[in-house]
Write a protein that binds this DNA or RNA. Sequence first.
DNA 1: GAAAAAACCATATGGTCATATGGCAACGCG
DNA 2: CGCGTTGCCATATGACCATATGGTTTTTTC
Lengths: 219, 219
Amino acid sequence: MPRTADHELRRAQMAEAVHRLIAHDGLDAATMAAVAREAGFSVGLVQHYFASKDDLLLFAYERMTADQLARVARLVTEGEADEQPIRAILLRCMPQLWPLDEVRRGEYRVNRAFHTRSLDNPTVAEVARQTAASVRAQVARAVENGKECGEVAKHADAELLAVELTAMIEGLADDLYREPELRVGERTAAEAAQVILERRLAAVFPGECRHYRGRSETD
Amino acid sequence: MPRTADHELRRAQMAEAVHRLIAHDGLDAATMAAVAREAGFSVGLVQHYFASKDDLLLFAYERMTADQLARVARLVTEGEADEQPIRAILLRCMPQLWPLDEVRRGEYRVNRAFHTRSLDNPTVAEVARQTAASVRAQVARAVENGKECGEVAKHADAELLAVELTAMIEGLADDLYREPELRVGERTAAEAAQVILERRLAAVFPGECRHYRGRSETD
DNA sequence: GAAAAAACCATATGGTCATATGGCAACGCG
DNA sequence: CGCGTTGCCATATGACCATATGGTTTTTTC
């Protein structure tokens, strides 16, 4: 066998370069030449690892959404370990998708770039669809769990509430990016978004949690 | 004076061509050549009426947002003429921004394209900001009016509710476009969005309207 | 240590784009 | 009626892009 290289590492390096470029200057800035330069490789090598630019972009997109979901999953695990009420866990997880710091602002920009791309690219659209479905399903499950542990009223429509909550999070993210300096009454935009979320969660999860007492931690 | 032409008409024709192209195939499809062809003119003429492509796109964007706002304003006027409660008026206006038919799907696509463009283009960002601010202000005013006519609780935070409602509308629009075929329980996606909106509006506007009795229609 | 395969690179190619340029056609005004 | 302005067009120009092509370099194995 000849010379070897870590394929996954290379692909990750290139995907990171794509991410940085899009986060900084938008999708159009992510040309093959720019990606190669940013990652410190030649154009030829990028071609070596990705059959086409479309493949490269899709890979970078999938990577980022997976990262985001993993970050949220970690917060959920931590919250469950601390036996926090579901409402509190959601309250910490959902703002992860808000552009509140430079990292998340970058992710927001990349997300938006691909969102628009998804309008004309079925493959990207499918990734976006699955990601949204996954988030929605997790929120719906959180609401269902809330019913079992007493935080949520039994008659609540978990699926419908999940749609509402995820939509609100997404919409608020747009607002926060568009006008980070906005003031709502005496609140900053970020505080306002936080309060809005708190109130909705308080309405959906009005009860006290029976802290997993005697129940096994079934995930 | 020599030969004359209707400048505003020409610019409008070109803006409409831009709209059609973006609605159908995305922002990248709106090249100068494509716009010229779509509008039935030469490239040179498009250049004659717009100093640059940026100008052309900005004009098209401003035009569309103005059209949308006008359409909503018309619904508001109609609703007020019919002495409908504010809640009912909002319930009819807000779904105007949802991609429920081909026209609005097109508008949604154009909006999204420019939204992404706004991330890297301050001029476009400013238009998006002002449009969002205008919508938010109108919703906030609707809530304030609701207080006066008895539909809304006096202690409600109109500004905060306006942020929440507009964010929800925007987020639901994304959902509806992404998965128009989604079913939420027994509801279609459109029905689900409608129900979500209805319930939120019912929560914010729980009271009966004192139908403008004895009050002048101060807009 | 040599062969071979993979890693990696520089550059060519063909296409597309925004914009520039130069000119023709039409029409209002004198 | 003809002059001049403006409406309008065809094409040139130079930049940039994704991808193709034909290498050179490195490293492993026998």
